[in-house]
Amino acid sequence: MSAYLELLWSFFQIGLFSIGGGYAAMPLIQAQVVDQHGWLSLSEFADIITISQMTPGPVAINSATFVGMRILGLPGAIVATLGCILPSCVIVTALAYFYFRYRNVSVVQGILGGLRPAVVALIASAGLTILMLAVFGGASTGVLDFPLDQIDWIAVVLFGAALILLRKTRLDPILIMGGAGVIAMAAYPLTAHLAG
């Protein structure tokens, strides 16, 4: 039982202190999982980050599942994930209550009015980062680094086609994303075999 509690408490702290999500959580996860408890080696931890970048879901949830699974099997995965989301559940539900109650107060409206354009900017920034990663396959080292010889033409074509479909049709975006994945599953191995 104590192993489960330890796991729960460990990921509870990760959930509680990782404000901003994503990569903000990485050093915390490393401190708990690698340095403090030795549940994973540093290279295993690096692998989780890589896997998390390629697979759906938040990094914290992904590593909670992975670590829980490795040390205590499926019950461990569930316990670690629960620990990770527990702080969010309590804090965000409270914030939700206050937001939906007081959002029409004019001061709150003023503050939110300043936040909305910033959120659009943050989405744009995240989108560009993903686009650079997709188009250059991680070869780009900075926001102004465009290694044109490393360009991934399949990703460029998929991106262009997906964007046109999104703007010209009413297809479900999830279908378009899944479709891009399936086409890539055929296209990459095919070009690799033709080239090699």
Binding site: V135, A162, P173, M177
Partner: peptide, 29 residues
């Protein structure tokens, strides 16, 4: 980790996700 089909699927989905974000950002901005 080394499965080429798995890596290809994830890379393709990434391009699709980028397109969705660009589309949404264009409308919102």
């Amino acid at each position: 980790q080394d499965n080429e089909y798995f890596v290809a699927l994830m890379t393709g989905m990434q391009a699709g996700v980028a397109a969705v974000i660009v589309d949404v950002v264009m409308k919102m901005s």
